[in-house]
Amino acid sequence: MSAILDAGWDTGVFLLDNIARIDAQGVHILDRRVYPFDKTWVTCPDVPSVATAIIDMVTQSGGTATAAAYGMVLAADHAGRHAQPRDELQRLARILRETRPTNDSVKTVVENSLEICARWEPEQWPGALVESVSTREKQRLALTWQIAEHGATLLPDGVRLLTHCWAETGLTQMVLAATRAGRTVQVFCDETRPYLQGSRLTADALRDAGAAVTVVPDVAAGYLLSEGAVDLVVTGSDRVAADGSVVNKAGTLALALTSKRYGVPFYSLCPRVDRDTPTAAGVPIELRDGEEALHCLGRRTATENVAGFYPAFDRTPADLVTGLITPTGVKAPHEL
């Protein structure tokens, strides 16, 4: 077991300092493309390089917001020495805001940072934003523990859970709460091509949380569901619309459809609801470079002279969602 089981969670990809750090050289971002095989850092000396790291998947999911928050510290430091500091801050903020269009956490962090800067003079911006990053991280962990405690009620002793991609801190805390209560939890992790977040990040974290973890190819999930080998499916959510429809990693929709067919409950972790978006149909889906579908872990996995197509996310309608695991309880979509 790693120290993930300790209160501090000082290993893994959970603690703030293991997501991103900042010092005089810039923002250092843990490279999730190679974790846990290698623990390496990508150093970003300025805002454009932070934006590039986010776009290039150096970090993803909740890590993008943390990287963007530190990127705004760099933006504030640079803009504070500019002839037109507030205009320059807005320009740099746009660079970060436009990195990942589907998950709106980066946009939210950037807007919050701008609101903080509006209350201070330029020379005070960096200090105020660094403090806000620490505060935000404490609030995030408290929120995800609330989600986890409600989610753990769905995990009786001997439960068999299927998950997809990297459902962030909430799922690991959820499993940890169950195993700490003495319950055994078996988890099937989809490998989640092309970056293999499921077989690397999720499997590593859930193993350390005390679960018995089995990695399966993405194409095997339907077999498990059809054979009655899964009691429930739990995924993360990159965005939840007002009607309870879910936008998440591509492949989530297929899991929800198959779960519905075989009567397996389908849940998504839901830190917040986007009240400004009525349904998931209003959420833009990021189409990444098709070349990414032709490679895996730095090696080409497709024959030459073929095209690739890679929508990074998909939309799951609310009628396929059994429940959303929120900070205030497990709720049906119509109860949000």
Rank of each mutant, 00 (worst) to 15 (best):
A3C: 07
D10E: 13
V13F: 02
F14P: 00
I19C: 03
G26W: 01
F37D: 02
W41K: 10
V42E: 02
S49F: 07
T52D: 06
T52Y: 03
I54Q: 01
T59E: 01
G63K: 00
T64D: 06
T66M: 07
G71T: 11
V73P: 09
A76L: 04
G80C: 05
Q84T: 12
E88K: 14
A93C: 12
R94F: 04
R100E: 14
P101K: 06
P101G: 06
V109N: 00
E115G: 08
R119H: 11
E131D: 15
R140V: 07
Q146A: 10
A152R: 01
L154H: 10
P156M: 09
V159N: 00
R160D: 07
L161K: 00
L161I: 13
Q173W: 04
A178L: 05
A178F: 03
A178H: 03
R180E: 08
F188R: 03
P194Y: 08
L196I: 14
L201V: 08
D204F: 15
D204H: 15
A211T: 08
D218I: 12
S226T: 11
A229Y: 01
D231G: 11
V233P: 01
S237P: 03
S245F: 05
L255I: 05
A256N: 09
S259A: 15
S268E: 01
D274T: 09
D274N: 14
R275A: 15
T279S: 15
A280G: 15
G282T: 13
I285R: 01
D289C: 12
H295Q: 14
C296S: 15
T301P: 01
E304D: 13
E304F: 08
A307P: 00
V321Y: 00
I325T: 00
